[in-house]
């Protein structure tokens, strides 16, 4: 078996971010101290979640226009793995917040927005498990995916930018801004995002392949 190039790339990039994320130089800041390195591990979780949810969104639309059940299974796999990454992002964020903001949950607008977004996607799991008929389940979950994705955009990208937040660059820009994120960190942060995203895509693909085999076994034997 030969690994596809992007799977190899994900291994290389994740290890690159692990090694250089821990060994590389970072700006020294009060309160943050060494935890600034969490930028390479906590933030890529969210980037990965957003990209996986976008894949699920695209496959949901493709399912609705083609009625091909494979697209439904793909969309579901991407949504489920996206939820795993959102849970990881939330837990790691709360751990980081405990030692920098003083408490795991401080009702920060971004925390609230992502929590709402997660609840919406948890409801997706409940909805999908609740419908036994395949055709119906595929259609309803595709429509729900489109709604959930359209809600995620304002909850994560728009609302937190309109109010003051504990997240870096509060009021206006909830990301690390040009002064916080220096070029040394960029060289590790962006590869980390790409590496974790490719890993998430890889896991989703495995999940899809398992579900597809399961589906075929159920209906064609």
């Amino acid at each position: 078996m030969r690994l596809r190039w992007w799977k190899l790339l994900s291994i290389v990039l994740v290890f690159y971010s692990l090694y250089f994320g821990m060994m590389g130089e970072v700006p020294s800041k009060d309160i943050l101290n060494e935890t600034i390195r969490n930028l390479y591990y906590h933030v890529p979780m969210w980037f990965c979640m957003i990209l996986l949810f976008s894949y699920a969104f695209v496959y949901a639309i493709r399912y609705l226009s083609s009625n091909n059940i494979q697209y439904d299974l793909k969309s579901a796999a991407f949504n489920k793995v996206g939820i795993v990454f959102s849970v990881l992002g939330m837990i790691t964020g709360m751990e980081w917040a405990t030692y920098t903001w003083g408490e795991p949950w401080s009702n920060d607008p971004k925390q609230l927005g992502t929590a709402l977004c997660m609840l919406i996607y948890f409801a997706y799991l409940v909805l999908r498990n609740g419908i036994k008929d395949d055709e119906k389940r595929a259609k309803i979950s595709a429509v729900y995916t489109i709604f959930a994705f359209s809600l995620m955009i304002p909850l994560i990208f728009v609302l937190p930018r309109m109010v003051d937040s504990l997240h870096p660059g509060n009021g206006g820009n909830p990301g690390f801004n040009a002064y916080d994120l220096d070029n040394r960190m960029r060289m590790i942060f962006y590869p980390a995002v790409i590496g974790w995203f490719l890993l998430g895509k890889w896991i989703s693909e495995l999940k899809y392949r398992i579900d597809h085999i399961h589906y075929k076994k159920l209906y064609h034997e």
Binding site: L18, M22, L32, N33, E34, T35, R37, N38, Y41, H42, M45, V81, V84, V87, L88, I91, T92, E95, W96, T98, Y99, T100, I203
Partner: peptide
């Protein structure tokens, strides 16, 4: 310098992936 918070975060990520 709170380096163990980073270790905790990494351990959480890998624990989550292993659970999955």
């Amino acid at each position: 310098g709170k380096i163990y918070v980073v270790v905790l975060v990494l351990a959480t990520i890998f624990a989550g992936l292993f659970i999955f």
